[in-house]
């Protein structure tokens, strides 16, 4: 019985507050409006806007993963694993770029 009890309590203790979720949402909306604004009104700075748009998208993705997906409060293994997966993707990315640059 004791063992059974410990399993039922094996959920992570941390409960994110509504206020923190709302704050995360506000941040994400502001970043979205910023990226739209830069794109629509900075059309003549083409390469800069693409780089900025991707940078802002990555910040948003990190915020979603860290706060909404709870990575910030999860055991460290989850942050380690996602880092490995993203590194793997970066390797694919570099290999594809090298392939196309050397044709």
């Amino acid at each position: 019985m004791k063992n059974q009890h410990s399993i039922e309590e094996s959920h992570s203790e941390h409960i994110t507050s509504y206020r923190e979720h709302f704050g995360t949402w506000v941040g994400l909306i502001l970043l979205t409006l910023m990226t739209v604004f830069i794109s629509v009104f900075g059309a003549d700075l083409r390469t800069i806007t693409v780089a900025t748009a991707l940078f802002i998208a990555s910040v948003k993705a990190l915020v979603v993963a860290y706060y909404f997906m709870h990575l910030k409060y999860d055991p460290r293994i989850y942050r380690v694993l996602i880092t490995i997966v993203m590194s793997l993707f970066t390797v694919f990315l570099i290999m594809v770029i090298l392939d196309y640059l050397t044709r």
Binding site: V36, S39, R46, V50, A53, L54, A61, V64
Partner: peptide
């Protein structure tokens, strides 16, 4: 989050 800028915001 990535699809949106890549398809809609590239101009």
């Amino acid at each position: 989050i990535y699809l949106f800028p890549l398809f809609y915001l590239i101009h």
